[in-house]
C-alpha cells in the first residue's frame, strides 16, 4: 500500500510539473491561461491528498476559477487589441 501511495505521489508531482512547464512556455495567451486553470485544479488535487480540504476548496473556487476567469477576459482583450481591423476571428490557434 505504501508503494502504491508513493507511485501516486510521484505521478501527481510529475503531472503538476509538466503542466507548469506547459503553461509557462506557451506563447499564445489563451492557451496559457487554460493550462494555468488546469494547473490550479491539479494543485487542489495535491492539497486534497495532503489532508487540507479547506485549501483545496479555496484554490479550486478562487485560485483556479476566479483568477482564471479574470485572466481569460484579459487574454481576450489583448487579442482583440492586437488585431482590431484584421479578420474578426484571428486564427492564431496553430499549434
Amino acid at each position: 500500500m505504501t508503494t502504491l501511495l508513493a507511485a501516486f505521489d510521484l505521478l501527481l508531482s510529475l503531472t503538476l510539473l509538466g503542466l507548469a512547464v506547459a503553461a509557462l512556455t506557451s506563447a499564445e495567451p489563451r492557451r496559457g491561461v487554460i493550462l494555468f486553470i488546469a494547473f490550479g485544479l491539479l494543485l487542489a488535487l495535491v492539497w486534497a491528498r495532503l489532508r487540507a480540504p479547506d485549501l483545496a476548496l479555496a484554490e479550486a473556487a478562487i485560485g483556479a476559477g476566479l483568477s482564471g476567469a479574470l485572466m481569460l477576459a484579459a487574454a481576450r482583450r489583448a487579442r482583440r487589441r492586437r488585431s482590431p481591423e484584421t479578420a474578426p476571428r484571428p486564427s492564431e490557434e496553430q499549434p
Binding site: L5, A20, A23, L24, P29, G32, V33, F36, F39, G40, L43, V46, W47, L50, R51, A52, L55, G63, S67, M71, A74, A75, A78
Partner: peptide, 28 residues
C-alpha cells in the same frame, strides 16, 4: 508580456504554498 508575467508570479506563489502545505503534513 504582462499576462505571462502574471501567470509566472502565480506559479511562484503556488510553489511557496506547496512548500508550506508539505511542511504541515503529518502522515496519512
Amino acid at each position: 508580456p504582462l499576462l505571462r508575467k502574471l501567470i509566472a508570479i502565480n506559479v511562484m506563489g503556488a510553489g511557496v504554498f506547496h512548500i508550506l502545505v508539505a511542511i504541515a503534513y503529518r502522515g496519512i
